[in-house]
Write a protein that binds this DNA or RNA. Structure first.
Length: 596
RNA sequence: GGCUCCAUAGUUCAAGGGAUAGAAUAGCGGUUUCCUAAACCGUAGAUCCAGGUUCGAGUCCUGGUGGAGCUACCA
């Protein structure tokens, strides 16, 4: 039993016996003792003073004295205001490390639950390359999937590629008009960037046409609708929907370019999926369910034939589900895909990793699903993450301020390369090995930078200041692991064995206890990160652990320690720390190099 | 206009209603005959404003100020 549980139990039974009052769980508040005070565990006494009817100081004193007498692990206490700081014996911490060390897996045992959690992320449009916003989405989705798995869930990762619609037709049309048969091979451009180029081209030409008309006095809205380019694009979409062979062939060709490009970026980021859905295959879903909804009178039809949900009772507006011409909208498709997924898979919940700009959409989705009578509506969760903003505000493709995913990744790797070469620690390595380490470090810095921030919050990225490699960063934690790996290598070279158990005679010092205390928390942190769906909790934890270990490492030597028993203790401590840091980094999708 | 979210050192981020608000970075000053100095130590620096609830408020409530998002027969 953990020391906190033991103390909690003892405090409760003590107060019950002595004062005839049973404290509620929320009244027994235990927390870690702050660094500036003596002690390990702190009981906040304020909530208990009403039951005990003494001053906070007196109450703390009585409880402290009792715990010291009754609980073997409590070796002393002190009272500061209403805070009872309890000192726990170093032997207890040694035992904690022994237990952690004995459990070979840092991972929580897989749950027996056969029902899976499905997590949808990435979901890109195929008309332009991925940017920094997508990076946050992908890293979050991938990391949350890993964390859920580590917490004992079955996880299915899915991607829904938005491969159809008017925006795709814009790229296709521009390529036909101005592309002169350009291909990724002929231009040397990555497929998604090539298609993106024509999407931009369309927009430019379209704007010109609008301007020509507004200058002749046509109202802006009229001009937007009249411009020949947009009419052509709309015509192309109609042909696509009618299955026109020529349009379809072009669509297939250009999408294939984009997929190849995306695949490259996904691979670089280290993210992947168990199943990829294409909107061209799912966009007709949901319509029949909506029609059923009319029969069941939960939806209604307007005079023009369009179908709506009335959400006034929920404090929202009306929401369109089928256009007057009978075609579906985004919401209709999402209704269809959700139903399909719950029917096809043994899924207990569905998590959508989508930006907070779509909060309203997902709020409405849940309400409509419920209206349609699907119980799993309560198991649809929107993992709503904040925008990545530039110092001057939102990224705008029109103003060319979009931070391209591929460019950023390359920049990170080359920064790692520059720094590494300056330090010269890898000089004797082969080129291939060096490049691999630069890649691991560059991506480590990027991933940690993104994931350490609470997903729900907006974050700022300044392209002028490169992402740090020192301090609270991925490379800092990676560096700690390479030091540890180096210690392990040297131990092996010197034939120093790492024992199966720690000798009982060892009494850990303060720095060592500091590390053990953190190691003990790891499983709890995973569970919390899973329920909060927040990789930031993992990131903050491993940073703190690395920092704590570095302090110990700086002050004490491991292999050069003279006492064999203490050396063994420190080796076990190091091995456990390495295991935990590596595992935590892996949950963030970050690799650890052997050297750096 | 309506709805939602946000506001913490110069900057980027932390802080389950609890102690003297933590880090990092930038600044200043130190540490290397010893397991990797991408490290370690020291120094200085912050809760948007006004009320309220509470033994205790960055955290909860009300009002204000400033910012973001949503409010499409786009996806």
């Amino acid at each position: 039993m953990s020391i906190e549980k033991t103390i909690e139990k003892e405090v409760k039974s003590f107060i019950e016996k002595e004062f005839g009052q049973t404290p509620a769980d929320t009244q027994v508040q235990l927390q870690k003792t702050r660094k500036e005070f003596k002690g390990d565990v702190t009981l906040v006494v304020f909530p208990l003073v009403k039951l005990i009817r003494k001053s906070p100081e007196q109450a703390a004193d009585i409880i402290g004295l009792h715990l010291k007498e009754k609980t073997a692990e409590v070796t002393g206490y002190n009272v500061v205001k209403g805070f009872l700081n309890l000192e726990i014996s170093p032997n207890y911490w040694r035992q904690v490390l022994n237990i952690l060390y004995g459990e070979k897996d840092a991972v929580v045992a897989p749950a027996a639950d056969e029902m899976a959690t499905m997590i949808e992320y990435s979901s890109p449009n195929t008309n332009k390359p991925l940017h920094l916003g997508h990076i946050r989405n992908n890293l979050l989705g991938h990391s949350v999937a890993k964390i859920l798995q580590a917490a004992g869930n079955k996880v299915i990762k899915v991607n829904l590629v938005n491969d159809r619609g008017i925006h795709i037709c814009k790229s296709m049309l521009a390529w036909e008009k101005w592309g002169q048969g350009e291909t990724p091979e002929s231009s040397g451009l990555k497929g998604d960037h090539l298609v993106g180029k024509y999407y931009v081209k369309f927009d430019q030409e379209y704007k010109k046409q609008i301007k020509e008309r507004t200058e002749k006095g046509v109202p802006a809205k009229e001009a937007e609708k009249q411009a020949p380019l947009i009419l052509e694009a709309q015509e192309m979409l109609r042909k696509w929907e009618a299955g026109d062979a020529e349009v379809n062939a072009l669509w297939q060709k250009m999408n294939a370019w984009v997929y190849a490009g995306f695949e490259e970026t996904y691979e670089k980021m280290g993210v992947g999926f168990d199943k990829i859905y294409y909107e061209s295959e799912t966009y007709k879903l949901g319509k029949s369910k909506v029609l059923e909804g009319i029969e069941n009178k939960v939806l209604f039809r307007k005079e023009d034939g369009s179908v709506w949900a009335d959400l006034k009772e929920e404090g929202l507006d009306q929401k369109l589900l089928l256009r007057a011409d009978g075609t579906s909208v985004y919401m209709t498709q999402d209704i269809g895909t959700a139903i399909q997924r719950f029917e096809q898979y043994p899924v207990k919940e569905l998590i959508y990793v989508v930006g907070n700009e779509q909060n309203y959409h997902f709020q409405v989705l849940s309400i409509i699903m419920k209206k349609l009578g699907y119980d799993f509506a309560d198991n649809l969760h929107h993992l709503s993450y904040g925008m990545v903003e530039l110092p001057e505000g939102k990224m705008k493709s029109r103003e060319g301020t979009v931070v391209d995913a591929d460019d950023l990744i390359e920049e990170m790797i080359s920064t790692a390369r520059e720094m590494s070469e300056e330090m010269g620690k890898l000089d004797e390595f082969e080129q291939m090995e060096k490049e691999n380490i630069h890649r691991i470090l560059g991506l480590g810095a990027l991933k940690y930078f993104i994931l350490k921030v609470d997903p729900r919050k907006n974050m700022t990225f300044d392209p002028k200041e490169s992402i740090d490699f020192n301090g609270n960063t991925g490379p800092f934690i990676q560096y700690t692991t390479t030091r540890l790996k180096s210690v392990m290598r040297k131990a092996e070279e010197k034939n120093i064995e790492i024992p199966a158990e720690i000798p009982e005679a060892v009494v850990p010092n303060e720095k060592e206890i500091g590390v053990v205390k953190l190691l003990k928390d790891y499983r709890t942190i995973i569970a919390e990160a899973a329920s909060e769906r927040s990789p930031a909790l993992i990131a903050n934890y491993i940073y703190e652990l690395a920092r704590e270990f570095n302090q110990f490492y700086h002050d004490y030597s491991i292999l050069h320690e003279e006492s064999e028993e203490i050396r063994q203790f420190r080796l076990v401590l190091s091995k456990e720390t390495l295991k935990t840091l590596t595992h935590g980094l892996d949950l963030l999708g970050i690799e650890t190099p052997e050297r750096m």
